[in-house]
Amino acid sequence: MNVKKHIPNSVTLGNMYCGFLSIGFTVSNSYKGATWLIIIGIILDALDGRLARLLNVKSDLGTQLDSLADIVTFGIAPALLFSYTNSIGGGWLDISLAGLFVLCGGYRLARFNSAQSEETSFFTGVPITAAGGILAITTLFHTHLPPMANLLIIALLSYAMVSTIRIPSLKNITLPNHKTMATILIGIVLLLFDRRSIVALYLTAIYFMYVAYRIMLMRANRNG
């Protein structure tokens, strides 16, 4: 039996399990833990793709498992987390938008899987992994934002997934260097701060601006 071809699939199943556990944490009102599990899922999602390309063991089974994991961990889990941390109009509006987010994410995955000729350097529409991760992280700040701002965030993310916006792919980027790893660690430390602290909120905003700057700088250096 070729063991190496099952390694990426095992990581993908771990990603799916993180999504299931996140749902369990959400219904138990452990929202921070639910967010962390989605973040771990993002890491595993990036890892399984790299492993498949490194080991040259890409398969149809792996593609199907990846899509199933994505809809659970980055579709259903963050949408449920959003609906539990927001309550407007008796909750009906929140759950409706959460359902719309899952539908748009499912459509985005199906469109990607059926587009055999899609460019490897760009995605059409925001990937569900990014949209789900952003939605999950914003729930950490839901008490600091006006309720309508939270609704606007999930509505925009839903639209971004099914839009035709061209998003640069990170698949061909080499493994992070020590500076990038330090940046990631800083972000993890910030997530450990008490979200009720306005200082932590400002620091996290600055962190995301710095990450955006590093991405733009990296692309400028590559194109130059």
Results as ranks from 00 to 15, higher is better:
residue 2 N to T: 12
residue 4 K to N: 08
residue 6 H to F: 15
residue 12 T to L: 05
residue 12 T to W: 04
residue 13 L to A: 10
residue 13 L to H: 03
residue 14 G to V: 12
residue 17 Y to I: 15
residue 18 C to Q: 05
residue 19 G to Q: 05
residue 26 T to E: 00
residue 27 V to H: 06
residue 29 N to A: 09
residue 30 S to Y: 14
residue 30 S to H: 14
residue 32 K to D: 12
residue 35 T to E: 15
residue 35 T to S: 14
residue 39 I to T: 13
residue 40 I to E: 08
residue 40 I to H: 07
residue 46 A to P: 00
residue 48 D to K: 05
residue 48 D to C: 07
residue 48 D to S: 07
residue 52 A to L: 06
residue 55 L to R: 06
residue 61 L to N: 04
residue 65 L to V: 09
residue 65 L to F: 13
residue 67 S to F: 00
residue 67 S to M: 00
residue 68 L to K: 10
residue 69 A to W: 02
residue 73 T to S: 15
residue 73 T to W: 05
residue 76 I to S: 06
residue 77 A to K: 05
residue 77 A to C: 06
residue 79 A to N: 02
residue 84 Y to D: 00
residue 85 T to Y: 08
residue 92 W to V: 08
residue 96 S to E: 04
residue 98 A to P: 02
residue 101 F to R: 02
residue 104 C to K: 04
residue 105 G to R: 04
residue 107 Y to S: 09
residue 107 Y to R: 14
residue 108 R to Q: 04
residue 110 A to D: 02
residue 116 Q to W: 01
residue 116 Q to G: 00
residue 118 E to R: 12
residue 124 T to R: 09
residue 125 G to R: 05
residue 126 V to W: 00
residue 126 V to Q: 04
residue 128 I to Q: 01
residue 128 I to E: 01
residue 129 T to H: 04
residue 129 T to W: 00
residue 133 G to N: 13
residue 133 G to R: 10
residue 134 I to W: 09
residue 134 I to S: 05
residue 135 L to M: 11
residue 138 T to W: 13
residue 140 L to Q: 13
residue 146 P to M: 08
residue 149 A to D: 09
residue 150 N to P: 06
residue 153 I to G: 03
residue 155 A to V: 11
residue 156 L to Q: 03
residue 158 S to H: 09
residue 158 S to T: 11
residue 159 Y to N: 02
residue 160 A to Q: 06
residue 161 M to E: 03
residue 161 M to V: 12
residue 163 S to L: 06
residue 167 I to Y: 06
residue 175 L to M: 10
residue 176 P to H: 00
residue 184 I to Q: 02
residue 184 I to G: 03
residue 186 I to L: 15
residue 192 L to D: 13
residue 195 R to P: 07
residue 198 I to M: 01
residue 203 L to R: 00
residue 203 L to H: 04
residue 205 A to V: 13
residue 205 A to E: 08
residue 211 V to S: 04
residue 213 Y to M: 10
residue 216 M to Q: 12
residue 217 L to G: 07
residue 217 L to F: 06
residue 218 M to I: 10
residue 220 A to Y: 10
